[in-house]
C-alpha cells in the first residue's frame, strides 16, 4: 500500500513538474487565453504577411468592434446549425450552398463592406473557405473569426436562434 502511495505521489510530482515546465514557457499564451485575447501570435504574423490573398484572423474583441462600426458577420455553417443558434446580427451564407447563395449575396452586399466569417470554431474549415470565396468574389476586407460560434457563446455575448 505504501509502495502504491509513493508511486502515486511521484506521479503527481511528475505531472506538476510537467505542468510547471509548460506554464513557464507559455504563461503569456495562457494569460491571453483567460483574459479573452485568444490570438495565435505565430498564425497572425504568417497570415498578416500574406493578407493580400488570405482572410485575416481576428479576435473576439475585434469582432465586437467591427459589429459596432457597421461590419457584417457572416455565418458559414449549415442552415440547420444557423437556425439552432448564431451570433446576433449574423447573416447566413452556408459554405455547403455557396454556389447557389453567393450571387444573391453579391447583389445585396457592397464590395467595400467589412465582412467577418465564422463557423464552429477551431478545427472547422468553413469560415476560412468562405473567406477565400468572398475575397475571390471581390470583397476587399474579409476577416475570419477562428473561435467561431462556440467561443462567442461561451463568452456570454449576444446570440440568436432557436436555442434562445
Amino acid at each position: 500500500m505504501n509502495d502504491l502511495k509513493r508511486i502515486g505521489l511521484e506521479a503527481c510530482v511528475l505531472i506538476a513538474f510537467g505542468a510547471l515546465f509548460g506554464l513557464t514557457l507559455n504563461y503569456q499564451l495562457v494569460i491571453d487565453a483567460f483574459s479573452g485575447q485568444l490570438a495565435a501570435p505565430q498564425r497572425q504574423s504568417v497570415q498578416e504577411s500574406v493578407s493580400v490573398v488570405l482572410p485575416i484572423p481576428v479576435l473576439i474583441d475585434e469582432v465586437q468592434q467591427v459589429i459596432a462600426s457597421g461590419g457584417m458577420i457572416v455565418d458559414a455553417r449549415s442552415p440547420e446549425l444557423y437556425a439552432m443558434g448564431y451570433i446576433a446580427g449574423a447573416v447566413s451564407l452556408p459554405m455547403v450552398e455557396i454556389d447557389t447563395e453567393l450571387p444573391a449575396f453579391l447583389v445585396r452586399v457592397a464590395k467595400d463592406q467589412t465582412l467577418i466569417a465564422y463557423c464552429s470554431g477551431f478545427g472547422c474549415p468553413d469560415s476560412f473557405d468562405l473567406g477565400m470565396r468572398l475575397i475571390e468574389a471581390g470583397y476587399q476586407d474579409v476577416r475570419v473569426f477562428e473561435g467561431g460560434y462556440p467561443e462567442w457563446r461561451d463568452a456570454g455575448l449576444p446570440v440568436a436562434g432557436e436555442s434562445q
Partner: peptide, 19 residues
C-alpha cells in the same frame, strides 16, 4: 471551455515529454 483548451495545450506536451 474555450480558454481551458489553451491551458491543456500549454501543459500536456511538456508532461508527455517529461514522462
Amino acid at each position: 471551455p474555450y480558454a481551458m483548451n489553451y491551458l491543456v495545450a500549454a501543459t500536456l506536451p511538456y508532461m508527455e515529454f517529461l514522462a
